[in-house]
């Protein structure tokens, strides 16, 4: 084995989930037909619980576009997309020297995050109940369109 490139690009959680879904994970309830190893299903199960499960290519791209004005490092944007912080306290450990660099402006960034990136499924269930879940997401889509 020869390592040609140790680092050939980073992937967000969403991209890994998208890759596993494109190979048929999630469509196969028996987990035997699709050519996916048990270890890959463990990764899939983990990612389904995170914020990545509701993201789409468009929302992630739009968020990256909006992030440009904040002058964030690439790793910070990646981490924000993966974690989807919903308050200033949650975003603080992700961004280096958050107070000195942003101060009060951090609230605007948190607002951008909660506007563009959908919340993780566990949060929705605890706040809204599973039944209201679907209506909530469709409302969010409409809001995005009007914005």
């Amino acid at each position: 084995m020869k390592i040609l490139k140790e680092y050939a690009g980073a992937l967000t959680n969403f991209e890994v989930l998208d890759f596993l879904r494109s190979r048929g994970a999630g469509k196969d309830p028996t987990r035997l037909i699709a050519a996916i190893a048990p270890s890959e299903y463990k990764v899939y199960d983990y990612l389904e619980q995170t914020a990545a499960s509701r993201q789409t290519r468009d929302t992630v791209n739009e968020f990256m576009e909006k992030c440009k004005i904040y002058d964030l490092a690439k790793a910070e944007i990646l981490n924000i997309i993966n974690i989807r912080p919903s308050s200033a306290a949650e975003i603080d450990p992700i961004i280096e020297e958050c107070d000195a660099r942003y101060g009060e402006k951090i609230e605007l960034l948190v607002e951008t995050v909660s506007d563009l990136l959908p919340p993780p499924p566990t949060q929705l269930e605890s706040e809204e109940g599973i039944g209201v879940d679907k209506e909530q997401t469709s409302d969010e889509h409409q809001m995005e369109v009007t914005q």
Partner: peptide, 10 residues
């Protein structure tokens, strides 16, 4: 968290 690595193997 995840990244790509390029490898050559015989």
């Amino acid at each position: 968290m995840f990244c790509l690595s390029e490898i050559e193997h015989t």
